[in-house]
């Protein structure tokens, strides 16, 4: 039996390298000794955590799909009962959509990107088919563009390597900036509200998000910081919407209903700035031991 010269532990008979530090044992064979019986046999039982077809991940998604479909169908039936008008086509379409989702979950590798992409494609196709009953596209254009936009924002970033995620952010921002004028063009026949309200508001939101990202470079924000920052970003978005709307109708007012939201957002921003710059404020609110 030998000892590891690095760790000082006694090694089991027949051991040629220390299991702790991998140092090779430099000793004559009679010191190393004959290999003793291994701690565990070398048989490696092939273990399936679950049946390959119905893994735990798949089961989770299936349960989720069924739950959502059930909720949607029940809601539709209750609404139909309340308004005394029943159209079987929407529940049937939902069931068809749910069935297609279940097939995807069963046959596609359970990764977020693949499942989300398949779900998007199937939904777009199904909505387009339903909308085509009168041989022309109408509402499905909006819905399908929204789905494509959601895919660009929520799924496409995962197709980028972590070091190239900035590319995904730019792509997402560009997609939103394209989507808004496109809807305006289709709906109104020209560029109206999208240029005067939507895009400037969106620019303000992007600026606020960029500020948050820059702030994250200087120390890790707490959960409270993150939540407050999100509230502030949404509030600034709302305020900007109101501001640009008033400008578009040439109102003499600077802000109308959103002035109270602006005050709240301003308070949050002041708190966040103080919290970031003054240690005493930070320690007081974070209840840290100093």
């Amino acid at each position: 039996m030998a000892y590891c010269v690095n760790c000082g532990v006694k090694l089991e008979s027949g051991t040629t390298a220390c299991p702790l530090c991998k140092t090779i044992v430099q000793a004559p064979p009679e010191v190393i000794g004959q290999p003793s019986e291994p701690l565990f046999p070398l048989i490696n039982e092939h273990i399936h955590i679950d049946h390959p077809m119905l893994t735990k991940n798949r089961k989770g998604v299936i349960e989720l799909v069924i739950a959502f479909m059930a909720i949607a169908v029940i809601t539709l039936f209750v609404t139909a009962f309340a308004i005394a008008h029943f159209s079987p086509w929407i529940p049937m379409a939902l069931v068809l959509l749910g069935g297609s989702y279940l097939l995807v979950v069963l046959f596609v590798r359970p990764s977020y990107v693949k499942i989300a992409s398949w779900f998007s494609v199937i939904t777009i196709a199904l909505l387009a088919i339903i909308d085509l009953y009168d041989m022309r596209f109408s509402w499905s254009l909006y819905a399908n563009l929204s789905i494509a936009l959601s895919w660009t924002l929520c799924v496409s970033p995962l197709l980028f390597k972590p070091e190239d995620r900035w590319g995904a952010i730019v792509l997402g921002a560009a997609a939103v900036a394209t989507y808004l004028p496109l809807i305006d063009l289709v709906e109104g026949g020209g560029l109206g509200w999208s240029l005067s309200i939507a895009l400037p508001t969106y620019a303000v939101v992007l600026l606020a998000v960029a500020t948050l990202l820059v702030r994250m470079k200087f120390g890790k924000p707490t959960i409270t910081d993150k939540v407050l920052s999100l509230i502030a970003i949404s509030s600034w978005g709302v305020v900007a919407g109101d501001f640009f709307h008033l400008r578009s109708i040439s109102s003499p007012l600077l802000l109308s209903w959103s002035s109270s939201v602006a005050i709240v957002a301003l308070c949050i921003v002041i708190f966040l700035v103080l919290n970031m710059t003054l240690r005493r404020v930070r320690n007081y609110f974070n209840n840290r031991v100093v």
Partner: peptide
């Protein structure tokens, strides 16, 4: 070991034997 307690180790890891 540093406190003078002899320790004998074994493993099921692939290295070492």
């Amino acid at each position: 070991v540093a406190k003078g307690i002899p320790v004998e180790v074994a493993t099921n890891r692939k290295n070492g034997k």
